[in-house]
Design a protein around this nucleic acid. Structure first.
Length: 459
RNA sequence: GAGGUUGUAGCUCAGUUGGUUAGAGCGCUAGAUUGUGGUUCUAGAGGUCGAGGGUUCGAAACCCUUCAUCCUCCCCA
């Protein structure tokens, strides 16, 4: 029976305090995006199925939340519904059963938007987008079925200046949030492509990248094992091992990769890109927070150039808190070729968990109401109400206790809501046109004429 | 999709080999205290032991099923 209400697996309610903390993260990210000249965009929660399918790889397709069509039981649809169901049972998709799905990320809907509106847009188009996305994944630490992404993308520009700006956006946001120990790992898909070309051919690229991506998790030996399982021979695996053993500062890594893959045209391009981004991203940033990592692969198969992954400080064991990269032709998927782009994403829900673990939320996040007016009776509360309205006009956040009650109760209400000040207007005060202002943190109080009440008293 | 963990009061959790009426702390309500909270003291309310079935003279405990939860793998933010 279980009459208890519940919410779907992997979703969450956010109480007042949580919302405030999340808002703090959103506002920080939004203000940095705006600072760098990005403009807001919102797209629907759901997209047509064909917009999403096939864009995230085979695994990704399975994780898309599909929406059942309405009217399946309508007599004139029943045959279609049945045959559609048969198709679904075979693992295929059927428009007769589902033609819409919840969006899986913000990049593909954005690409769809650009493809639809490229005639009207001014390029390069820089947009940011802060919205929830949904994945039918099994929930666990740092993984939810509904979560927010904050994306910033630039389309219509091949300049590496964009990558450099995005690196600095990451740095600015994480620094403002106090997350100074973050790591921004970068690599280039072109280097990975060069490696694949050098040993095994381009068709082995996905096999190679998914295996080496796990290096820090499972270790070199296991990676070699997995490569062998995926059909690479010993010579090829040895080359990959050399590749994986590249280490040192960013500059040292670049020198070593030059020796290994610099002779290939695509490798040369990738190395040059990394070199530029590393050099231009700013003194103090490159090499400490910005780390060139040749094992970084990233799953999304539309990336073609520089790729990013932001990681929380190793101590919190959270993994990726953001990611992104360059794609040469995302809108080509929607019939509008030759619009290159590059973008990044912040995972707010994980950043929230990390800030909580590290106790990095500032004090000010918790404040709501500044002043509580005590309710001392009908005539008294009427006076309190009109006084309160005047204060509200000055921008002071205040409230009047909802009913006449013992002072004890009203005090406790203020305390629980973390309200810093109370104002008592009782019969004596009504007569004298005064109020007793008490600072609950220090315990001090003073009687002041109501006309003198102002926001200065409540700081 | 595969594997595991936990589910007892509003919250955090005890509960012995299966044995009478299931406990504690915190919180809540009321009083001590009719205009001054946080401290203290006193009293009180609050449980179909996640749900359903089974074993047993007897189940919170053992078995099966199911749901939820958290975690690991896969993959990802």
């Amino acid at each position: 029976m279980s009459n208890k209400p519940s919410i779907p697996q992997g979703t969450r309610d956010f109480g007042p305090e949580e919302v405030r903390k999340r808002q703090y993260i959103f506002n920080t990210i939004r203000s940095v995006f705006e600072l760098y000249g990005f403009q807001p965009l919102e797209t629907p929660a759901m997209e047509n199925m064909e917009t999403l399918m096939g864009k995230y790889g085979e695994e990704g397709d399975k994780l898309i939340f599909k929406i059942l069509n309405n009217g399946l039981n309508d007599p004139k649809n029943q045959d279609k519904s049945r045959s559609g169901f048969e198709k679904v049972m075979e693992g295929k998709n059927s428009k007769d059963l589902t033609e819409r799905a919840l969006k899986y990320d913000l990049t593909i809907p954005f690409a769809r938007y650009v493809a639809m509106n490229h005639g009207q847009l001014t390029f390069p188009f820089k947009r940011y987008q802060i919205q929830p996305v949904w994945r039918a994944d099994r929930p666990q630490r740092g993984r939810y079925r509904e979560f927010y992404q904050c994306d910033a993308d630039v389309v219509g520009s091949k300049s590496l200046l964009n990558e450099v700006e995005l690196v600095n956006i990451y740095n600015e946001v994480f620094t403002q949030l106090g997350l100074t120990g973050y790591e921004l790992r970068i690599n280039s898909r072109k280097i990975l492509a060069a490696l694949a070309e050098f040993c095994g051919g381009a068709d082995k690229m996905i096999d190679i990248t998914t295996a080496i991506d796990k290096l820090d998790k499972i270790g070199l030996d296991k990676v070699k094992e997995e490569l062998a399982q995926r059909g690479l021979n010993e010579e090829q695996i040895n080359t990959i091992e050399k590749y994986l053993l590249i280490d040192g500062s960013n500059e040292e890594k670049l020198n070593q990769i030059e020796l290994l893959l610099g002779h290939l045209e695509i490798g040369k391009q990738g190395i040059e890109e990394l070199e530029i981004v590393n050099r231009e991203s700013g003194p103090g940033l490159a090499g400490s927070n910005l780390i060139i990592d040749f094992t970084l692969a990233r799953g999304l198969n539309y990336y073609t150039g520089i790729i990013f992954e932001a990681k929380a400080p190793a101590t919190v064991k959270m993994g990726s808190i953001g990611g992104g990269g360059r794609y040469d032709d995302l809108t080509g998927l929607f019939g509008v070729p030759n619009i290159p782009g590059v973008g990044i994403s912040f995972g707010v829900d994980r950043i929230y968990d990390v800030l909580k673990d590290l106790d990095l939320f500032p004090e000010g996040v918790y404040t709501g109401t500044q002043v509580l007016f005590f309710n001392m009776g009908v005539a008294e509360s009427s006076k309190a109400f009109s006084t309160m309205q005047l204060l509200r006009k000055q921008g002071v956040r205040c409230e009047l206790y909802h009913e006449q009650a013992k002072m004890d109760k009203q005090f406790k209400y203020a305390e629980k809501k973390n309200i810093g000040f109370i104002v008592i207007i009782g019969s004596t005060e009504v007569q004298n046109n005064t109020g007793v202002v008490k600072n609950l943190k220090t315990g001090t109080q003073q009687t002041v004429p109501l006309a003198d009440l102002s926001n200065k008293l409540f700081i």
